[in-house]
């Protein structure tokens, strides 16, 4: 019975908490919050949200461009269905994109972390190295990158991709082995994409309190243990940020062949047109979102042990309360039965 009372009082407390209106301070905070976001909201609304919604509307229509303006013919999800008929290569491109992104995003992030840790150590000309590692980010945006790939500068000639592939094919299924071998082939390209990530990791690493490491050293922790127990948990939010950033960057940069096929479809006369291209873009971004969501779910910061225990205890209490209620109900029923019997 005592437990039941406890549960009840908790419920009452919760109800009371809900009834309390936000105070003056909270109201002011909310007001200021809106004021601070407002300029960004206006900008985003005009140039991001409205265009996004419009492009979704286009993707449901057949868009005919006239000299006088645009004409829309509503056709539901036909544009989406048409993609598989008109562009079978687009779907295979999408599948390839998913595989390469899922493999290369972690590679970029791990590489960036290693480089950031190296650059965070004490070496001569550290500043110069930092500069150099970030530089490719400035360069590789745009036409320079395509020139470089054309010159064959992106593959390391000494690393023979075909030998690696042959070796991997013995162990793994063919298409997985191929993507991994491709990864080796495009190693330098992968490195060039990781400048921003290195910078983000570096600034996170510098914020870790050095006395933490000292304490661990005094307790006899090796640098291996320090990495897993101190460095990694502290920079975990930045890992998530970097994964998301690399995926988005890889997916939305101009050298992506899916984007170029969307662009060609946009101006490809009457059969495809803008509505069809919008449908392609939406399909693409939905897939991109799914990939990001999967990574985010894996990397979401887990609650610490204390919170876990509290949650467990709460669950247990709830369970007990349920059992108690059941027993009581049964007793009541039983009593009623007995009363009925005695009456009769």
């Amino acid at each position: 019975m005592a437990e039941k009372e406890v549960v009840e009082t908790k419920k009452q407390k919760k109800e009371k908490m809900k009834k309390i209106k936000p105070g003056r301070l909270a109201k002011r905070e909310a007001r200021m919050g809106y004021v601070f976001v407002l300029p960004w909201i206006i900008g985003a609304l005009a140039f991001l949200i409205v265009p996004l919604c419009q492009s979704f509307y286009y993707s449901l229509n057949r868009v005919v461009l006239n000299p006088t303006g645009m004409k829309f013919v509503f056709r539901g999800f036909d544009n989406y269905a048409q993609i598989s008929v008109q562009d079978p290569t687009f779907l295979t491109d999408l599948a390839n994109y998913v595989v390469t992104t899922v493999i290369s995003a972690p590679v970029i992030v791990v590489f960036a972390l290693i480089i950031a840790m190296l650059l965070n150590g004490k070496i001569k000309c550290r500043g110069l190295f930092r500069l150099i590692y970030f530089l490719p980010v400035i360069v590789v945006s745009g036409p320079v990158m395509s020139m470089l790939t054309g010159q064959g500068a992106t593959s390391i000639s000494s690393v023979d991709a075909s030998t690696i592939q042959r070796f991997l094919e013995g162990v793994l299924p063919t298409n997985i082995a191929e993507t991994i071998a491709n990864l080796f082939g495009n190693m330098t390209q992968t490195l060039w994409y990781s400048g921003v990530q290195i910078l983000i990791f570096l600034s996170a690493l510098q914020k870790i309190n050095p006395s933490l490491y000292e304490a661990a050293k005094i307790d006899g922790g090796s640098s291996w243990e320090c990495f897993w127990k101190i460095t990694l948990p502290t920079i975990k939010p930045m890992i998530l940020l970097n994964v998301v950033y690399s995926i988005v960057y890889m997916s939305n940069n101009g050298n992506n062949n899916i984007i170029s096929s969307i662009q060609t479809a946009m101006f490809a006369g009457t059969t495809k047109g803008y509505g069809y291209a919008s449908a392609m873009a939406w399909l693409y971004s939905v897939i991109e979102t799914v990939i990001v969501a999967v990574f985010a779910l894996i990397l979401m910061t887990r609650k610490d042990i204390y919170q876990k225990q509290v949650k467990k205890a709460k669950k247990e209490a709830k369970k007990q309360a349920k059992v108690l209620k059941k027993v009581q109900r049964r007793e009541m029923k039983h009593e009623a039965k007995i009363a009925k019997a005695t009456k009769a």
Binding site: G33, Y34, L52, S55, I262, M266, A281, E288, T289, V292
Partner: peptide, 26 residues
């Protein structure tokens, strides 16, 4: 803290995913 904060962040995340080519004409 205020109402709709998480929603705004979500909107930003969705906008993040979107291909810039697609919003060109709108």
């Amino acid at each position: 803290k205020y109402k709709g904060r998480d929603m705004l962040m979500q909107v930003n995340q969705i906008a993040l995913m979107f291909v810039p080519v697609a919003v060109m004409i709108p």
